[in-house]
């Protein structure tokens, strides 16, 4: 009996901490989101309740909740999830003024989500295993047999699918399939980009395919003296240089659309974007005029082969190909 009474008290205690106004489903790094939400709450007096999980899982949860979802805003690391929710008519149209505040290639063509931050795919390499001038000239070159056993990839990381999508778009399914087959036989497979970065840094592999910010985060974590690796970018117009957009959207059935929109405005405002740039996230802010973290090279100096996000779509074709190749 005592146990049941104690339980009741505990349950009540758990519940009393709830009662927020705005519900945010967050697939972005929790630390960044929490900092943004705290500042937003301080300024607007709107409390934010955050559910953090993998962006893909959150998208599926939003789909299964449908119109009953308690979520107001969805914030994620990759655009395909947003495209998918848009296809399912679960997102609300954003005001044109808001959309036009950032470059048009960083927003949904349908106007239902807006980009927040950018990052670029690149190579991390271990100079003791491969010299910088011996690095491959293209992502496709990694299929060559000389890289057998020297590459580290994370095919199950959501950052990997857009690369496959870009390749599919540029070179067609046959070439993509044979490249994936080569990866399957050549590469060391890791759980995610963090592990790939670690592996190359520790000398387990010569080259790893990652998004650039993981390398900076690792450097922050272990210090410069702990870094035994460098970053290298693929040349311009190579499929290896894919820009991933982290975006945010208002749910069509949001219980608090006003508060949700206010939060989105805040995140892409110059204040929110500056917080992003000054934090430890190492992503590029989308808002023109906001400088990225000083540690990063300016975005304009980086080689990019911008494939419109509409072309990448919701990634379904790429992901299916990836799955049939046996990599994920």
């Amino acid at each position: 009996m005592t146990a049941i009474a104690v339980m009741g008290i505990l349950l009540a205690a758990c519940n009393s901490s709830a009662g927020p106004v705005l519900t945010l489903y967050n697939g972005q790094h929790t630390e960044l989101t929490a900092a943004l939400a705290d500042r937003f709450t301080a300024e607007s007096h709107i409390a934010v309740a955050i559910r953090s999980n993998d962006g893909v899982v959150l998208a599926d949860q939003l789909l299964s909740e449908g119109s009953h979802s308690p979520a107001d805003v969805y914030f994620t690391e990759n655009s395909p999830e947003l495209m998918n929710l848009e296809d399912h008519h679960l997102l609300a149209k954003l005001p044109a003024r808001l959309l036009s505040s950032v470059p048009s290639e960083d927003v949904s063509p349908g106007g239902e989500w807006i980009g927040v931050a950018l990052r670029i795919s690149c190579m991390v390499y271990n100079p003791s295993l491969v010299t910088s001038h011996n690095l491959p000239r293209s992502l496709l070159d990694l299929a060559e047999s000389k890289w057998d056993g020297k590459i580290a990839i994370a095919p199950t990381d959501s950052d990997f699918v857009p690369l496959v999508g870009a390749m599919l778009h540029a070179d067609g399914p046959a070439a993509t399939r044979s490249w994936l087959a080569a990866m399957k036989s050549h590469a060391h497979l890791y759980q995610n980009d963090e592990s790939v970065t670690n592996a190359v840094n520790d000398g387990e592999a010569a080259i790893g395919i990652i998004n650039q910010y993981y390398w900076y985060r690792l450097r922050l974590e272990v210090g410069t003296q702990g870094m035994h690796s460098s970053l290298a970018y693929f040349p311009n117009h190579d499929v290896g240089s894919v820009i991933n957009i982290s975006g945010i959207a208002l749910l069509a059935h949001a219980p608090h659309p006003g508060a949700g929109l206010a939060f989105i405005r805040f995140v892409v405002s110059s204040e929110g974007q500056k917080m992003l740039a000054s934090g430890d996230d190492f992503e590029y802010p989308v808002l023109p005029g906001v400088a990225p973290n000083a540690a990063l090279p300016p975005l304009s100096t980086l080689p990019t082969d911008r494939i419109p996000v509409t072309e990448l779509g919701n990634d379904e074709a790429a992901a299916t190909l990836l799955q049939t190749s046996g990599l994920s």
Partner: peptide, 12 residues
Amino acid sequence: SIYAQYQTSFSS
């Protein structure tokens, strides 16, 4: 692979 399923089909 169920995770990959969420990723590919975006449906449970």
